[in-house]
């Protein structure tokens, strides 16, 4: 019986730790996405799906679904990174499309 109680206690503690870690990971991912999106916005090339993913991340975070918040934030960051790469490469590539 005593043993059982210990196991339960350990499990609850473990869950609590995992929960706290999830919260931290989600917060870190959201901050990472926000930083990348700021660069994309400065390059005038923010993608609407990045905004949508970021909103979903914030909403999941507020609802306590940290796994979803982290996944959505990582998607927002990846989309922002792709838009930054696009904007930077277009700075020279656009000229190839001009009729001459």
């Amino acid at each position: 019986m005593k043993r059982m109680a210990l196991v339960v206690a350990a499990a609850v503690l473990g869950l609590g730790v995992a929960h706290a870690a999830g919260k931290v990971d989600a917060a870190r991912a959201i901050a990472g996405a926000a930083a990348k999106m700021k660069i994309a916005a400065a390059l005038d090339d923010q993608w609407t799906p990045a905004i949508a993913a970021f909103k979903a991340a914030k909403a999941a975070d507020a609802a306590g679904d940290y796994a979803k918040a982290e996944a959505s934030a990582k998607r927002a960051e990846a989309l922002a990174a792709a838009s930054i790469a696009q904007a930077r490469s277009q700075k020279r590539l656009w000229q190839n499309a001009v009729p001459r």
């Binding site: 993608w47 609407t48 656009w94 499309a97």
Partner: peptide
């Protein structure tokens, strides 16, 4: 002439 957005189109992609 600059491509933008997730679909990677410029104005010129469609209209030129």
């Amino acid at each position: 002439y600059s491509r933008r957005g997730q679909l990677n189109f410029s104005c010129a992609s469609c209209h030129v």
